[in-house]
């Protein structure tokens, strides 16, 4: 072999290795900028080998074709996404497959928001209503919330998934303490106006009247023409604030009288019932609180907060009741789930 060839080949190999530090630096920059999207190969392989054959074939083919096409990986994700709809609407038996594929799409293209939202919606809403088992329903709620949290970890700079998670907590879990935190997170990024009001709506239902008023106040400062916020502020001040203030001063009986006066005119007002139950709890009248929450829960089948509170109080009072999914969910998740700080490296490590 001629000398120049030996030197040439050595030079080529040396250069390959010399590129490495530059590559490392670039990869770090890309990670910081959120550009790096390492394919979670191990998760994909594990899921493919654990799932059923047809799915594994579809999924692995999708991944390979996606990876193979390089630039078309996201388009491959789109194609698989359409396949998920097909599976979902085929019937009950194929919904697990559909969920698996949805999960695959989120792995293939984690910065595509739609699959995160739809997957979580399918879990927390659609699968939820297909079963009567509260424990299973609680599990679906939990999966939906976790799905959105993972989506947020991939897309921390967009409001969409914060809002979606907040809405799921607001609408389905009725965790009015947790939901506003996620709405507020959404508000850090460009977002539609109604997100601001959702904070107020959540505190209103919780109920936490002063914070609700603060939230609406913020809306009106941002947009003085926000008729919804103006109207809500007027209603709250007129209907609930007097009772709330009395309760804050410790005059519970007067407070209950004040809210009862409003409830006489509007006996089915769920917000009024929430305020009444809250005051009764503060006053230590647990039985009254239980009755009020139960009434609210019975009046509205979707008032999961009232139903959950009723279960909590019934347990404290020793009254036998059936557990609700939301109650199981709150007990399962506890406090540590609520410290859901976005962890964007979870998949890459």
């Amino acid at each position: 072999m001629k000398l120049y060839r030996i030197v040439g080949w050595l030079l080529a190999i040396a250069m390959l290795f010399a590129i490495h530090p530059l590559d490392q630096s670039l990869q770090y920059d890309r990670l910081v900028l959120g550009l790096r999207q390492p394919t979670p190969w191990f998760q994909i392989v594990a899921r493919a080998s654990g799932g059923d054959t047809e799915l594994a074939v579809t999924g692995v083919t999708g991944v390979i074709v996606g990876a193979a096409l390089g630039g078309f990986r996201e388009v491959a994700a789109s194609m698989l996404w359409m396949k998920t709809h097909e599976y979902w609407h085929k019937g009950h038996g194929t919904q697990a497959k559909a969920l698996w594929l949805m999960r695959l799409v989120t792995l293939l293209d984690p910065h595509w928001l739609e699959p995160w939202r739809i997957t979580a919606w399918h879990l927390a809403y659609n699968l939820y209503v297909e079963t009567d088992d509260p424990a299973l329903q609680a599990k679906y709620l939990q999966m939906g919330v976790e799905c959105l949290k993972e989506g947020i970890s991939w897309n921390p700079d967009r409001y969409d998934l914060y809002l979606e998670l907040g809405w799921t907590l607001f609408d389905k879990v009725k965790d009015y303490e947790e939901a506003p935190k996620w709405f507020r997170a959404a508000m850090r990024y460009p977002h539609p106006e109604y997100v601001d009001r959702l904070v107020g709506h959540a505190y209103e239902r919780m109920p936490d009247i002063p914070r609700a008023l603060d939230a609406y106040d913020y809306c009106m400062k941002r947009n003085p023409l926000d008729q919804t916020a103006v109207g809500a502020t007027l209603t709250i001040r007129e209907r609930y604030l007097p009772a709330w203030d009395l309760a804050e001063q410790g005059s519970y009986d007067e407070a209950l009288d004040a809210i009862n006066e409003y409830l006489l005119a509007q006996p089915t007002s769920s917000l009024g019932l929430h305020v009444k139950a809250h005051i009764a709890e503060q006053a230590g009248q647990l039985r009254l609180a239980y009755d009020t929450w139960s009434l609210a829960g019975n009046l509205s089948a979707l008032d999961f907060l009232a139903q959950r509170k009723a279960v909590e109080l019934a347990q404290r009072l020793g009254i036998p009741v059936e557990e609700t999914p939301q109650h199981i969910y709150m007990q399962r998740t506890g406090k540590e789930m609520k410290a859901g700080s976005p962890d964007r490296d979870r998949l890459s490590r």
């Binding site: 590559d23 890309r30 959120g34 550009l35 910065h111 700079d157």
Partner: peptide
């Protein structure tokens, strides 16, 4: 490394 799609979609 030639792919900056994430930056495009996230607006960074």
């Amino acid at each position: 490394i030639f792919d900056i799609r994430e930056a495009i979609l996230m607006g960074t």
